[in-house]
Design a binder for these strands. Structure first.
Length: 437
RNA sequence: GCGGUCAUAGCUCAGUUGGUUAGAGCACAAGAUUGUGAAUCUUGGGGUCGCGGGUUCGAGUCCCGUUGGCCGCCCCA
């Protein structure tokens, strides 16, 4: 066993793992770009105060934080939202609306690592600033969905649960609950899926027994799984706020349906996302089989930019983690078997032939082809085996016979067809081969 | 932070009631093989049996501690 190993929750990325990670990043970036989102990044280290302001004092226990040599209290970023809000807030007046930004970055949280949860992990993070209407939610949920589908995942594999903190506030208000009771109920709702009736214990300790009729109405709200059901349960309550909010719901779900994404989205008011900073719609993505932790989560946070010192600026954002998504892709056989393949492998006779080959190898590399060859002299037969294992599509054969004739033998490693090519024509032939793919 | 469980080669694992020098497959390397591919055969390198202590004539095996993995709780921005 090695004397040193990586810290708990921190992963080594050997080339195969790195290739898988890059595959995920590549499709995320490609997808975000297709949606017109611009990539940015922020510092890995921020002032501890930034996170305390956003999340409260307790957050420090979950952070990699320390005092730097200048006496500053700092923390490794546990998420992107405070940083991006800081950046946006500082230039809000100069940025064209809507502001659509994304990032792919590493985050650090001092928590117990478990399957699907590391202490250092990557997230795709996307935010849309400056749009108060539900069109922003449509854009982001569509992006989230496509960021999963790009890997070949389908509605059989994952779904997005859509909820709304505002709707809960309006609903509970209509049922006569004050602000403190409403928050306690939401806290119970958050835990209800896992804890069942026990979830209401903290509420009852604080406010006394929950009336059975009230509880029934809360549970009925949790049972709502569709827009018609939502309309039905809210109809008797009336009120302008509820009616307006239902209109927002119709726009979000209608927009997603028009994009052909309705099959991924389920109404599920059981999602409230903790005591976070969310101010409206919230959503989370899960695997259909329910075997994994949440894959992605997000929602609207209209107050945060101002809270961190910027102007009032409505915002919606979400993040997808690399760990859970990676587990899902592996489980569904959607992680390609990566070989760090080259394009061309050169088979070289001896020292004299090697000098000739080197000229072509370098020219091909300079032209942008991935070219490899045995670093030491190796038996011919073995070189063909190495060529096959290299993943290359072409082999160039530099033997004494070929050099004497001024040619190079070009072997198509897929169909094993060979042709002799004048050395001067090698680059052109290679271009023709790869250009015609 | 709390509880449960596990830890033998790069990977997957075997290792008898405690008993000689800890094994296999895969992977890696060399050779058979200086002219044609995923093969075969031969050979080799690689282990403080996670780490530390204890019991014992003797510990991979039993006991205690510790570190790490996994599972659950807290948390999950």
């Amino acid at each position: 066993m090695a004397k040193f190993q990586s810290l708990p929750g921190f992963r080594d990325f050997y080339p195969d793992a790195f290739a898988r990670r890059n595959h995920i990043f590549r499709l995320w970036r490609q997808t975000a770009s297709a949606f017109g989102f611009a990539e940015y990044d922020a510092p890995v280290l921020e002032s501890l105060e930034l996170y305390k302001t956003k999340s409260g004092e307790e957050i420090e226990a979950q952070l990699f934080s320390f005092t730097d040599k200048g006496g500053r209290e700092v923390a490794l970023r546990p998420e992107m939202t405070p940083s991006v809000c800081r950046m946006i807030g500082a230039r809000a007046n100069a940025l064209k609306r809507p502001i659509k930004w994304f990032s792919v970055a590493e985050y650090y949280r001092y928590e117990r690592a478990q399957k699907g949860r590391e202490r250092a992990f990557f997230q795709f993070n996307a935010d849309l600033f400056g749009e108060p209407g539900p069109e922003a939610e449509i854009e982001l949920i569509a992006l989230l969905t496509q960021c999963m589908c790009a890997f070949g995942l389908t509605e059989q594999d994952f779904y997005v649960r859509l909820s709304d903190r505002n709707l809960w506030f309006y609903y509970l208000e209509a049922l006569g609950l004050d602000d403190a009771r409403t928050r306690a109920v939401l806290s119970a709702v958050d835990k209800f899926e896992k804890a069942g009736d026990d979830a209401f214990k903290p509420y009852e300790e604080q406010f006394g027994p929950l009336e059975s009729q009230l509880k029934a109405r809360i549970l009925a709200f949790l049972d709502v799984k569709s827009l018609p059901a939502l309309e039905q349960i809210l109809a008797p309550l009336g009120g302008e706020k509820l009616a307006a909010r239902l209109g927002d719901w119709r726009r979000v779900l209608g927009g997603l349906e028009a994009m052909g994404l309705a099959r991924f989205v389920e109404v599920d008011l059981g999602v409230v996302r903790g005591l976070a900073y969310y101010t409206g719609f919230v959503f989370e993505a899960f695997d259909r089989k329910g075997e994994l932790r949440a894959i992605a989560g997000g929602g609207r946070y209209n107050d945060l930019v101002a809270k961190l010192g910027g102007p009032d600026l409505p915002a919606v954002g979400f993040a997808i983690g690399d760990v859970t998504l990676g587990l899902l892709l592996e489980a569904r056989g959607l992680m390609p078997a990566f070989v760090n393949a080259c394009d061309i492998y050169c088979v070289i006779g001896g020292e004299a032939e090697r000098r000739v080959a080197f000229a072509d190898i370098h020219a091909l590399r300079a032209a942008g082809y991935r070219v490899d060859y045995p670093i030491r002299e190796v038996a011919f037969g073995k070189q063909f085996k190495l060529a096959g294992e290299s993943g290359a599509k072409l082999a160039l054969i530099y033997g004494a016979d070929e050099i004497a004739k001024g040619v190079v033998k070009v072997r198509d490693l897929t169909d094993r067809a060979e042709q002799e090519v004048l050395r001067d024509d090698v680059l052109a032939v290679v271009r023709g081969f790869f250009g015609g793919e």
